[in-house]
Design a protein around this nucleic acid. Structure first.
Length: 502
RNA sequence: GGGUCGUUAGCUCAGCUGGUAGAGCAGCGGACUUUUAAUCCGUUGGUCGUGAGUUCGAAUCUCACACGGCCUACCA
């Protein structure tokens, strides 16, 4: 990497870069090759919005002077006049550079500018004979030399790996990519406003945890030198956010990264963005209503509609989402399973073995039902669906159901076959929580390396009293995938994790 | 992790059953004062992912490795 900072010898480079580098050398000789004195007054989209509809004649009469800057992405030289298209953060605008208006010297200099160079230009708006809004440039200057050639102007950058490694090139070339990240930004912004409007307090809790907790997952480990202690990148903020509710922050949310040291796939990146929120004096049924409302409003604000198209299928966020228990969901898609079978531990264990699905010896009926659901039904839940009543054995932080201690007041929301949200009434009984942690420790000792640790500090916090609370997590990347119609999580993360390049 | 397809010029891609590489774009030179993926003429540019093997001869066949795409399994 340090090599990148050294002047690279031209013999190692292809001739295109060598050519551009020699142009830069010439620029250095005649002045500051990287001037920062140009200030623009206009951006492309604003000009189009304001003047696209104005007639050619009227535009000529009004003689609007504008000043723009951007990267040159197209260039057409025709002797004594040239056209160039520059691209800024908002879009594109065409420049007309000619001996008549720009001057011969300036035009000759322009001819040696390369695609990718950053230009500043000033001039009057006009319309070409095909009606395209353009700038008749009176002065054009090179603001930053681009030493490396851009991807091919028509096909753009298509190599998936290169799009991820050199995202800036992907952004320069592909309008679609710019749109995806605009949707991402708007989604997060809309969510933030949704919470702020409801008097939630936004907080940041630690990314480095002495005890990784709040989820079942393998953490990344690191070490603090001065304290000489092991730390883990957080797998979830949950236990810290609930400490805040104990402290009196009765409505809190955090939008931030989680890190899980597990596989990478089209749906998993080692670091991913999670929304978690907690509200005191509410329960999980409130959360389900709240989630329906939030997703509908966010979609409306980001996309202008609550009926989104994902991978050519419509997802309707306008109506209440279906709510099914785990066994109801299994039976909906697989009516061959009877109530008796689904509540028969031996039958389930046998069936799962036949389906070659891993089970643990300590799995109860609920755990086995969940395994069967994950395997046979989860991917079929395309329409937004809340799956409710998760077994207590797989929900160590959720409140037990008042009528059935084997299940918890918990749901997961599935859309397009993927888990999008996970919410529950929080377990606020410190003694039950201690028992559940103990069970996790036993599972860990039995070889489950995703099981939780015993967090004594969290138990101490609970002993001060967590008000009855509802809490939920929503995977932001997966939500953005839905909104941006992306099949791969890497397409909605600017710099997804990749292998080392060398 | 398993399966499968791929890696050729800066970019997008051809390259057949083996005879040591082509196009378009970009670049360079020239023509052209309303083009728009500008056009036209000329031209530079490649250790064909890496390493071995088969062969008189390998981008092409075989094997191994590296990296990547897609599918698949587990975590959100």
């Amino acid at each position: 990497m340090t090599q990148e900072n050294q002047p690279v010898t031209t013999q190692n480079e292809n001739q295109i870069i060598a050519e551009r580098r020699s142009k830069l050398t010439e620029l250095r000789k005649v002045g500051n090759a990287f001037p920062n004195i140009f200030r623009r007054d206009n951006i492309a989209s604003q000009l189009h919005e304001q003047y696209d509809e104005r007639s050619k004649e009227l535009l000529e009469e009004s003689a609007v002077t504008v000043k723009v800057a951007g990267r040159m992405v197209l260039k057409r030289i025709m002797g004594k006049a040239s056209f160039a298209t520059i691209q800024d953060m908002s879009g594109r605008i065409q420049l007309y550079i000619s001996n008549d208006h720009t001057g011969q010297d300036n035009h000759e200099a322009f001819k040696h500018y390369d695609l990718g160079d950053i230009l500043g230009a000033q001039g009057k708006l006009f319309k070409t004979k095909t009606g395209e809004l353009s700038i008749r440039v009176t002065n054009c200057q090179l603001l930053t030399k681009c030493l490396r050639p851009l991807p091919e102007k028509f096909h753009g950058l298509t190599d998936q790996e290169q799009k991820y490694r050199q995202r800036y090139l992907d952004l320069i070339t592909n309008e679609e990519t710019r749109k995806v990240f605009s949707i991402r930004s708007k989604t997060i912004h809309a969510i933030r406003e949704f919470f702020v409007a409801r008097d939630y307090l936004e907080v940041e809790t630690p990314m480095m945890h002495p005890i990784p907790g709040g989820a079942s997952a393998r953490p990344f480990a690191t070490h603090h030198n001065a304290l000489d202690m092991s730390l883990y990148l957080r797998i979830a903020p949950e236990l810290y956010l609930k400490r805040l509710v104990i402290g009196g922050m009765e409505k809190v949310f955090e939008i931030n990264r989680n890190f899980r040291n597990e596989g990478i796939s089209t749906r998993h990146n080692p670091e991913f963005t999670m929304l978690e929120f907690y509200e005191a004096y509410q329960d999980y049924t409130y959360l389900m209503d709240f989630t329906e409302k939030m997703l509908g409003e966010v979609a409306e604000r980001v996309l202008g509609t609550r009926k989104i198209i994902y991978q050519e299928r419509e997802i309707d966020l306008t109506k209440p989402f279906q709510r099914l228990t785990i066994t109801q969901a299994i039976q909906k898609f697989h009516p061959e399973y009877t109530d008796v079978q689904l509540n028969d531990r031996d039958y389930l264990a046998d069936k799962l073995q036949k389906l070659r699905i891993k089970t643990h010896s300590h799995d109860g009926i609920g755990g086995l039902q969940l395994s069967l659901f994950d395997e046979t039904t989860e991917h079929l839940l395309f329409e937004p669906t809340f799956i409710i009543d998760y077994p207590a054995e797989v929900s160590p932080l959720a409140r037990r159901n008042d009528d059935n201690a084997e299940i918890t007041d918990r749901f997961e929301l599935y859309i397009a076959g993927r888990e999008i949200a996970n919410g529950f009434s929080e377990l606020n009984d410190p003694e039950d929580q201690a028992t559940r942690f103990q069970a996790q420790v036993e599972a860990k000792d039995a070889g489950d390396d995703e099981a939780m640790h015993y967090d004594a500090d969290y138990i101490r916090a609970l002993e001060y009293g967590l008000p009855p609370t509802a809490g939920e997590g929503i995977g932001i990347d997966r939500l953005v995938m839905l909104f941006a119609d992306s099949a791969n999580i890497r397409d909605v993360i600017l710099f997804p994790q990749l292998r080392r390049e060398d």
